[in-house]
C-alpha cells in the first residue's frame, strides 16, 4: 500500500506535483493516466524515493519512505524506470541476478535460493532461452522484459512501472501488461504503472488515477473514472466510451481533437 499526504514536488521553483493525496491499495493493479507533463513520472519517482518531495509525505506500508533503509526499501518496492537507450555489455542472466543485490550483504554470493528466484524471473518474462545472450544484442521488447525480470528478481511486494510499453509493438505491449496482471494475480504484487494507452489502462487496471497539471483529477475503478467528460477536460479529446457486451468492461471507441484545441495548435 502506498499513500501520499499533501505531497508537493518542485522543479526549479515550479510545483510539478501540488499537494497530492492519493492511496494505492494493496493487491491491486493501478494505472496512472494523464497528458504529457502532468507529473505522472514525477509521482512514480517520488513514490520510489528517486526524488524527494518538497513537503508532504509518502508512506509505503505505513512507514514514511525516508525512514526505510535503502536495501530493505529495495526488497519491498521495485521500480522499472523509463527505457534508457544506453545499454550495457553484460549477459541477461547477470542483469537479472543484480535483482538479488538488495537481498545480499557485502560480498555475499548468490546461493541456490537466489539462483532459483532468478531462473523463475527469467521464465516468467519468457527470457529463459535468452539468458546467455548479451543485453546489447536484444531487441527493445526483449530488453524491456529483461529489465522487468530484474525487478521481479527483487521479489518486491510493490512493483512500479514507468511507461513499460513505450517503444514496443502491440504484441509486446500486451505481453508486458499480461505479465503485470499475472504478477498481481499469482504473486500478489501490488502494481502501479504509468500508461499512455487509455484502452490498455481500461482493460488491465483495477484502479485508475487520472492526473492533470500536477494534481489528481480523479481516482477510482475504471468505470467510475473514465468517461467522456474526463477525456474532454483532461485530454482535450471528444471521445465515445462504450461498454463491451462480452464482459461489461469499457473501451474508448473513437477519439478526435476538441475544436478549440485544434485551433490552438494551428
Amino acid at each position: 500500500m502506498i499513500r501520499t499526504e499533501q505531497l508537493t514536488v518542485k522543479y526549479r521553483g515550479h510545483a510539478v506535483l501540488d499537494q497530492i493525496n492519493v492511496l494505492f491499495e494493496q493487491g491491486l493493479v493501478h494505472s496512472i493516466l494523464g497528458p504529457n507533463g502532468c507529473g505522472k513520472s514525477t509521482l512514480l519517482k517520488t513514490l520510489s524515493r528517486q526524488l524527494k518531495g518538497e513537503s508532504g509525505a509518502v508512506y509505503v506500508d505505513g512507514k514514511e519512505v525516508k525512514d526505510w533503509g535503502t536495501k530493505s526499501f529495495a526488497r519491498h518496492l521495485a521500480i522499472l524506470s523509463q527505457v534508457q537507450e544506453r545499454s550495457i555489455d553484460i549477459r541477461v542472466h547477470d542483469l537479472v541476478s543484480y535483482g538479488r543485490f538488495p537481498h545480499k550483504g557485502w560480498m555475499q554470493k548468490l546461493d541456490d535460493e537466489d539462483i532459483k528466484v532468478v531462473q523463475n524471473a527469467l521464465e516468467l518474462t519468457g527470457m529463459a532461452s535468452l539468458a546467455n545472450r548479451n543485453v546489447q544484442e536484444l531487441s527493445g521488447g526483449e530488453r524491456q522484459r529483461a529489465r522487468i525480470a530484474m525487478a521481479i528478481a527483487q521479489q518486491p511486494k510493490l512493483l512500479l512501472l514507468d511507461e513499460p510499453t513505450t517503444y514496443l509493438d502491440l504484441c509486446h505491449q500486451l505481453e508486458i501488461l499480461e505479465l503485470a496482471r499475472h504478477l498481481n494475480r499469482v504473486q500478489k504484487m501490488t502494481i502501479v504503472m504509468v500508461l499512455h494507452d487509455l484502452n490498455h489502462a481500461l482493460s488491465y487496471s483495477d484502479r485508475i488515477t487520472v492526473m492533470k497539471n500536477g494534481s489528481i483529477y480523479s481516482h477510482g475503478a475504471p468505470c467510475e473514472v473514465v468517461n467522456e467528460e474526463m477525456l474532454r477536460e483532461v485530454f482535450h479529446v471528444e471521445a465515445c466510451v462504450e461498454k463491451l457486451d462480452v464482459d461489461g468492461s469499457l473501451f474508448i471507441k473513437s477519439m478526435k481533437l476538441l475544436l478549440d484545441k485544434r485551433r490552438l495548435m494551428g
Binding site: 535503502t70 529495495a74 524506470s81 543485490f101
Partner: peptide, 19 residues
C-alpha cells in the same frame, strides 16, 4: 559488484538499493 550495479544507471542502481 557495486560498480556493476552502478553501470545500470543512477535510476536503476537506486532502485536496487545502492547508495
Amino acid at each position: 559488484q557495486r560498480m556493476n550495479i552502478l553501470m545500470l544507471g543512477d535510476a536503476d542502481a537506486k532502485g536496487l538499493g545502492l547508495h
